[in-house]
Design a protein around this nucleic acid. Structure first.
Lengths: 147, 147
DNA sequence: CCCTAATAATTGATAGATCAATTATTGACA
DNA sequence: TGTCAATAATTGATCTATCAATTATTAGGG
């Protein structure tokens, strides 16, 4: 097989697209006075989706280290956006939820974030988006543990 | 517009695919005794491609901070994989190149890295790969500075 | 030409991420 | 039921990334 050019490599392009999207989004969020990081926002959205989940689940969904989740949750807790309640039936884990302030914060800033998402896929057809999402998921499956 | 599910968001899937690919690749590289990080490898490949370039160009191609490039290059220099030569016609910038050891290192480990790339796109047709790459580039264009 | 602005690289400060080890708790099974 | 392994979360150590400020050098306009 011939040696491929860097620019043709999917993982290379994924990494660059990811970096550029984060840099751009963070800049816009900073400018709008949204005082959290892109990754913190993602965490809030995951919590919102599941309504209530453990830190381990949060680490799994976000593909981040549990230690990192602990520290990020402290930050989000200090900002008043999340609550951690001990579970009555399992004292090892916490139930992580959005606070009222957290829900309001997400609601308030959702429009800007949506516009960033839209911008990232500007010019894409529904068909393309479906295929793209599908292929990204397949890559994740290919890169799951095993062998 | 209806609120979208997290799983349908392209940027969310890109971030996850990127993380999973890096975690998987790093694990394999560690296991194979390739004593550098995935990001360091990417830098080596960029240098290899351009044969000779400045740190600023390296930062631009890799979408990383120049400060980070400085420090990573020190590491790669300590390992003996890169050389930085002052330019005769411009004393502000260095010419960054692969050393002989660097070239040998890339050559020696290319097979493993290629297998990782292949694994990530296992089951993809050439047509799909072309479209995927194209869409990832378009996202980068959408997320480039401006407005 | 000179002076100021722009550029390349570096450094210090700080924040965030991962790994390994630790603590507390739960589960399993002999 | 008592012991040992597994699990959830945390902490400390270490590494890497970014930002802002600094140094050295180059370029451009009056």
């Amino acid at each position: 097989m011939k040696e491929q050019d860097l620019e043709d490599l999917i993982l290379f392009q994924i990494d660059r697209a990811n970096k550029m999207a984060k840099i751009y989004s963070q800049r816009k969020m900073d400018k709008a006075g949204i005082d959290i990081t892109v990754d913190q926002w993602v965490l809030l959205k995951i919590i919102e989706k599941w309504e209530e989940l453990s830190q381990r689940e949060l680490a799994e969904h976000s593909k981040r280290d549990p230690a990192s989740i602990t520290r990020t949750l402290h930050i989000l807790q200090q900002k008043g956006f999340v609550n951690r309640e001990p579970l009555p039936d399992n004292r090892r884990q916490y139930s992580v939820k959005l606070s009222q302030a957290g829900k309001a914060f997400v609601k308030k800033n959702m429009a800007l974030v949506t516009s960033l998402r839209q911008k990232s896929i500007n010019g894409f057809s529904d068909e393309e988006l479906h295929q793209l999402r599908d292929m990204l998921v397949r890559i994740q499956e290919n890169m799951s543990e095993g062998d």
